[in-house]
Design a protein around this nucleic acid. Structure first.
Lengths: 366, 366
DNA sequence: ATCGAGCATGTTCACGTCAACATGCAGTGC
DNA sequence: GCACTGCATGTTGACGTGAACATGCTCGAT
């Protein structure tokens, strides 16, 4: 198929072979080469490459043929230089640890690709001010038209961390609402759903395994949990703070399991819920017979935990899509969106049930 | 919020003000501006920006001051155009679904950043030939110096999918060994570890829940499992094929649970192992008392499954780091590495134990 | 026949950077 | 004192593209 591959363009290349293999890299044919090959001007090639309509069909055909023959690819650096647009969006995120972030990134990447944009991933190894600053510094040297920041974002409030001026930004999972457009899951709604579900089941109150304080989503979930309890006149136990890991969930779960008054637990994510589940098993407190557990996220695996976990589903895909949408809107129009909230849904599985006869380990009734 | 959206029809720009805030973006100060401000030539600014040593300290100071004052940032497009190097590496991967891929990506991003490279993420929505081709096409329009491909890569064998010639490539999780350098976990070693562990515990044989056939890691694990059984003279049951999801693990687990001769199961990843665990619980076959289960990956959560899962740990970070290393080596020297294997480690937790009195549901012996 | 509108195509130039090649000046050796 | 070396700095041009402007041709209206 490939055969001789164009062979003779001009005198031009003699011992190209050797040079090409090593040092000479990445200098493919340019528009000028295509133009020569097709017998037209460079500008015409440009027009064809950009799908302009004012080109004679026959000429267009000749040019595309030449492109194919030469294996021409537009040079994005030159394009960007000329146009000042990079067709790329940066994504700043903490090491991709968390399930939710990853799903969001996935959706962002898909949406950006659809829109003809490229993703420039800028990892932040540690959520320290220094590392975040470095990431931001990098930004302006990088070639991006806008940025999505997925960082538990109290750091954005620091006065001395500064984004390059004039660079469109959208923030995910943060407040920062006044400084930047925000796209986020409706944390409060989700937490309310979970808490009410347990209350409706007849539990006297709901204990909460919270995420770390520095995370806004953790704080929002916690606040909504507390507000819901108050509204319903239920006592508000102290929230126990974990770090999102199932390990921390397990540690906290052990403490909860030791307290016989605990019958309902709402964990701020599925991983911590998993740890709680394990703690309950180890402590001989059957779920859901004695203790009900609800998570948050709806990871793929949640339905296969033991028992299958009742949880709040987040639509990460939607969050990602909306982020890109908002960002590109800003990039193209210069006008920033406001805040966008994506709702949640309660997925009821087998880890929740009505409490048994209060505080007595009687046999399961009917 | 959406309001007028774009407004200006023909006049193109009404007041420059508005135009400046929107259309005119990203034209910060250039070297020329800094040069003027500092009273030196552009070339001197360039030298300072690149940390060359042949600049008088006093001049350097003056230039950096001017840079700061103006908020100068080098334009990477111009740099790339001039130098033909983009300082960016592309990563082609399937929608970041899998845990392992995501960890690998994380490590790649970190390593690349350390090396002063940027990550250009190129998602492949579906593992169809078409989508892969599109991703590859994008590649040459994108500005990357090399590519890491994390794709279950039977697709790479298709003759008609072609990478841009001369673009350095490293493949992760694939064979393709003859065409490209490969970095991968030593799948065979891990699978052997898992199988031998169960055999050593005294199980007559080990059943296998395999990953999909199109995945090379799945195939390698399966082959190693089979080879190990043969070497040890154990019978080789049919492998049951899942799709990596815990859901599929559950489905298959139900079948395994129904067969009383099954006492040991090796699942090709932790998620499927989780599904198997659930199936065993549902079927009243206690783990590990009656059935032992081993996974593969060692996800963060595995230690909090119920029971905590014995599994094979993969060092994704290492894989990612090595990939970048191999790729950059190729980018810089033009010479391709060979294959690199990263080893694995067996993590024994509570989901495995010696079989009870063969095939009898007797009480647990001392 | 004449003019101009409409359209395909060509020419020129600047985007920001940096390699290669000047320039100019201080100091060194003979 | 003269050529010469070493070093800081300046000048020129090209990387590949596409906007703006220029050219030339066809066709219809007058």
């Amino acid at each position: 198929m490939t055969s001789t591959q164009a062979a003779e363009p001009a005198g031009e290349r003699a011992g190209e072979q050797a040079a090409e293999s090593a040092g000479n890299r990445r200098r493919g044919p340019s528009m000028a080469d295509v133009a020569r090959e097709a017998g037209v001007s460079g500008q015409t090639v440009s027009r064809v490459a950009n799908g302009r309509h004012n080109v004679d069909p026959e000429t267009r055909e000749r040019v595309t043929a030449a492109m194919r023959r030469l294996g021409y690819r537009p040079n994005s650096a030159a394009r960007a230089l000329r146009s000042g647009r990079f067709h790329s969006i940066g994504v700043i995120m903490f090491t991709l640890s968390s399930f939710g972030n990853m799903r969001t990134l996935d959706a962002i990447a898909a949406a950006a690709t659809d829109a003809g944009y490229t993703i420039n991933l800028i990892p932040v190894p540690n959520p320290t001010r220094g590392d975040v600053s470095v990431a931001f510094d990098r930004l302006s040297e990088e070639a991006v038209d806008g940025v999505v920041i997925i960082v538990e974002a109290h750091l954005l409030d620091e006065r001395d961390i500064e984004l390059p001026a004039g660079l469109p930004v959208v923030v995910v999972d943060s407040n920062a609402g006044d400084r930047f457009p925000v796209v986020d899951t409706d944390q409060a709604h989700g937490a309310r759903l979970a808490t009410e579900h347990l209350l409706d089941l007849g539990h006297a109150t709901v204990h909460h395994v919270a995420g770390p304080d520095r995370s806004y989503s953790a704080v929002h979930r916690r606040e909504a949990w507390e507000a819901t309890l108050r509204e319903r006149g239920a006592p508000v136990p102290d929230a126990l703070v974990g770090d999102w890991s199932s390990e921390s969930g397990h540690r906290i779960g052990l403490r909860l399991a030791a307290d016989p008054s605990v019958t309902a637990v709402f964990a701020a994510n599925d991983q911590m819920a998993l740890g709680v589940l394990r703690a309950m098993h180890e402590s001989g407190r059957p779920v859901p017979a004695e203790v009900s557990v609800v998570g948050f996220d709806d990871m793929e695996e949640s339905g296969n935990y033991w028992p299958p976990l009742t949880t709040v589903r987040q639509f990460f895909g939607e969050v990602g899509r909306r982020s890109v949408e908002a960002l590109l809107h800003e990039v193209e129009s210069g006008v920033a969106h406001g805040t966008t909230l994506v709702s949640t849904e309660l997925i009821v599985r087998d880890s929740t049930a009505a409490p048994t006869a209060p505080r007595a380990a009687a046999s399961v009734t009917g």
